[in-house]
Design a protein around this nucleic acid. Structure first.
Lengths: 329, 329
DNA sequence: TTGTAGGCGTTATCAC
DNA sequence: GTGATAACGCCTACAA
C-alpha cells in the first residue's frame, strides 16, 4: 500500500496524499477527510526507507555497547530505547566487543544506515581508534557518550566522578579501621583507570600506603572474581578490604571469603561499583558505589535528543557518584 | 560519496561501479581494479537505505522482547544480535512491554521499516492480538519465536518442555521428603501457565495434594519475591518447598527465608527457573530449572536465518529442560 | 487547493 | 564490457 494506491482510490494525486500523511496545511477539509478515511481503512503506514532516502534521515539512532549483558549496560539500553522510541526513533543496538576492530567495524556498519544520531555507552569508546572512525564516518550527526568523552565538535559526554567516588569508598573502609585494601580492576578502560587513581590516592594518604601495589586484574565474571579473591587471600592473608571495580566480581569475591571462613565485614570488607541488582542478591548484601548509571543514561539520551532537535547543551557534564552502604562494610 | 561520484572520478558509468561494488562478473579486470582503488581511497560504503528501497529488503531484523532487562532475555538479545550481525543483518531491538497495545505498536513500528525477518522472544507474544497484527503487517517475512508459537504459515516456534520440567522439580523435592510446596507465578503468560500445570500435576500425584491451592502471584522483582515469601510463611507455616517461576523472585525468597531464621534447604527447599547468573550469586546457591534459553535463542536465530535463506525447517520444535541442582534442594 | 516533475542512491534491464 | 534508463516510495519545489 503506497501513497499512489491511496491516491488512486481517492481520485487525487500522490502529492496530496503525501501532504495529508504529513499533516501539511492547505488541503480542502473534505479532501483531507476522504484521504484520512482511506489511510485508516487500508492501514497505510509510510515506508520509512523511502522517506529516509529523500529526507536523508532515517529516524534511527545507533547505540554502541561493548557487551549488553553487563547488568548496568543492559539497564541503559533499556531506558534509552524507551526514551528514544517515545520520540519516534528506532534504536540499532550493536554489541561491539572491546577490541578496536569490533568497535570500528560497528561504526562502519552504522555509517551505511544513515543514522540520525549515535550513542556510545561506556568509557571503552574513549579511545583514538573510535575518535578517528567517528570523525571520518560521522562528522556531523549528534553523538552522545555515556561515561566517556571525545574531543570532537559533535560529541557530547556525560561523566561520573568515579575518582572521588572510589576515594570515598576507600576512606569509608579506613574510617572503620580497615586499612589494608586490595583493588581489583577488570580492564584498563579510561573509566577504570580513573577509579584506580582514586584508590591509589586514598591508600597513599592512609595508614597502609604499601597497598598501592595491591592492584589485581580480573576480567568481569563470577569465576574470575572468585579466583582473584583467593589469590589475594593467599598473597596477603592480612588483607582487610577489597575494592572491586564492578559488582559481578565483587559478589563472587564475597563468596570466596565466606567459603574461606572469613567474616564479612568484620574481618574483610567488600565494596563493588555499579550498584546493580547483584548487590541485593548476594549475602551479605554488597555495599557499592552507585555510579549513577541510570541518571547517566537518561541524561545522555536527553542530551542526544536535544542535539537532534537542534538544541544546544554543554559538551561535557559530570554527575556525582554516591555510596550505597549495605552489609559488607 | 555515491556511486556517481566514484563513477565520475573513474571515468565510467555508475552501473559499472555498482557492479564492482556488488562483485558482479563481466568487468574488465583493469576497470575493476581502478574502481576498487577509488572505492578504497574514498572509503565508500553503499547507502543501505537506497539499496533497501530498490531491493525491497533492508538487511534488518526486528527483535521483540517484552523487557530486555530480564536476565534471560538479555542473554538472548546478545547472542541473537551477535549471530545475525555475522550474516550482515542489523537488529532492531524493541522493548514492547507486556500490554497488548505495546506489542501491537511495536509490530506496527517495525512494519514501516521493511524488515527482512522478525524474532519474538517470550511466550507473552503467543496471543491473539499479536497473531492478528502479524498476519496483517507481516504476511510473508520469516518469523521465529523463542518460547512460543503461533499458527501462521510464516511463523516457526521453538519451545521448551517446561511442563515436564516443573513436574520434575516438584518430584525432586518430594523425593527429598518435602511435600508441602507453594508455587509462585509472576504472570499468566502461556509459558507460565504450562509451568503451573506441571506443578499441579505433580502435587496432585504427591502426598500433599492440598497444595494445589498454594499458587501465588508475584510480579518479577526482588521486592515481590520477598513479600510473597513472607506471605506464604504466614499463611502456611508448614511449607516445605517453594517453586518459583523465575530466579529473580526466588533469590529474594531465599533471603526472606533466611531472614526468618529458616534453614534452606533443610526446612524449606527452593527452586527457580531460568538458571540465570543470579543462581550462583545468592547464598545458598539456587537450584534451578534450566529452560535452555541459550540453546533456544541459538536455535531460534538459526531457524530464522534458515528461513531468510529460503531454507526450510519444521514449524515447531521442542527442547528439553533440565534441573541444575545447587544448594537450595 | 491540487497536480506535475524531479530527485534521493541504488539496482536491474536493456541496448550497444 | 559498459552505459543509458527506469524503477523503488516518498517528498517538495514549482506550476496551474
Amino acid at each position: 500500500m503506497t501513497i499512489y494506491d491511496i491516491a488512486e482510490k481517492a481520485g487525487v494525486s500522490a502529492s496530496t496524499v503525501s501532504r495529508v500523511v504529513n499533516n501539511k496545511p492547505g488541503i480542502k477539509p473534505e479532501t483531507r477527510r476522504k484521504i484520512e478515511a482511506l489511510l485508516e481503512q487500508y492501514d497505510y503506514t509510510p515506508n520509512e526507507t523511502a522517506r529516509g532516502l529523500v529526507k536523508r534521515s532515517s529516524k534511527m539512532i545507533g547505540i554502541l555497547i561493548a557487551d549488553i549483558r553487563y547488568a548496568h549496560y543492559m539497564d541503559i539500553a533499556f531506558y534509552v530505547e524507551q526514551e528514544l522510541s517515545r520520540s519516534g526513533y528506532t534504536c540499532l543496538i550493536l554489541n561491539t566487543g572491546i577490541t578496536e576492530e569490533g568497535k570500528v567495524n560497528a561504526i562502519r556498519r552504522l555509517a551505511q544506515r544513515q543514522i540520525d544520531g549515535l550513542m556510545l555507552v561506556g568509557s571503552t569508546f574513549q579511545c583514538e581508534a573510535v575518535e578517528q572512525a567517528l570523525a571520518q564516518n560521522f562528522p556531523d550527526i549528534p553523538i552522545a557518550m555515556a561515561n566517556g568523552y571525545l574531543p570532537l565538535p559533535n560529541v557530547k559526554g556525560v561523566l561520573v566522578d568515579e575518582y572521588n567516588g572510589v576515594m570515598e569508598c576507600i576512606k569509608l573502609m579506613q574510617k572503620k579501621n580497615h586499612h589494608k585494601i586490595a583493588f581489583i580492576i577488570p580492564n584498563t578502560t579510561p573509566s577504570n583507570l580513573q577509579k584506580q587513581a582514586g584508590f591509589l590516592q586514598a591508600v597513599r594518604e592512609g595508614k597502609a600506603p604499601e597497598c598501592a601495589d595491591w592492584v589485581y586484574l580480573a576480567p568481569t565474571s563470577l569465576e574470575e572474581g572468585y579466583r582473584v579473591t583467593r589469590q589475594i587471600l593467599s598473597e596477603h592473608p592480612d588483607v582487610e578490604g577489597l575494592m572491586f571495580c564492578e559488582d559481578e566480581a565483587a559478589v563472587s569475591g564475597i563468596r570466596a571469603l565466606t567459603d574461606a571462613g572469613i567474616q564479612v565485614p568484620e574481618q574483610v570488607q567488600v565494596i563493588g561499583i555499579d550498584n546493580t541488582r547483584y548487590c541485593e542478591i548476594c549475602n551479605p548484601k554488597l555495599t557499592a558505589l552507585d555510579n549513577m548509571m541510570l541518571e547517566m543514561s537518561m541524561e545522555t539520551s536527553r542530551i542526544l535528543m536535544e542535539s537532534l532537535n537542534g538544541g544546544t547543551s554543554p559538551s561535557k557534564i559530570m554527575l556525582f557518584s554516591r555510596i550505597i552502604e549495605r552489609e559488607t562494610t
